[in-house]
Amino acid sequence: MTSFEFTTPTPTSIRVVRSFDAPVDLVWRAHTEPELLKQWMTGPPDHSLPVCEIDFRVGGKARYVWKNPQFEMGMTAEFKEIVEHERIVYTELYDGWPEGASTVTTVFAAAGDQTITTVDIEYLTQDARDAAMQPGFKEGYEASYETLDKLLPQLRVGS
């Protein structure tokens, strides 16, 4: 049995938790080796991932291009942190959206015969950063989660 959870823990972040019936070293390989990534990280229906080039070291870059007959979308990532079999942090930048860098943290955890990955995507908007510096921001966060949950029921899609 595998589980899948997709939530919005804060207004500027998304969390995806998934379990896999495989040991952590295989899940890690599938997340880091281009020839394996090309087999599964193909994105929307009818797309493929013909370009997947990874310079897998801190400061190294990765380049991905997804394609279908009408459409092409490229993304460049830069690795910020790599802890083997445990953790990968990178920033990602989609083509044509230079101001929209987000930070993606993937944590790998062994759980019996399974591996659980937790992906946190943090959207870094300048205004959100500025707002986060204001006093009372954190306190407000706590109180507001419940409000947001009620307000955005379509976002509570964890299964």
Binding site: T2, F4, I14, V16, G43, Q154
Partner: peptide, 23 residues
């Protein structure tokens, strides 16, 4: 978000197959 969610779901379903093969 719904679109992003389904992309992750589909990707991971394919990853299950890749992992089976690796095992």
């Amino acid at each position: 978000l719904g679109e992003l969610r389904s992309i992750y779901e589909d990707n991971y379903a394919r990853l299950d197959e890749v992992l089976d093969k690796l095992k």
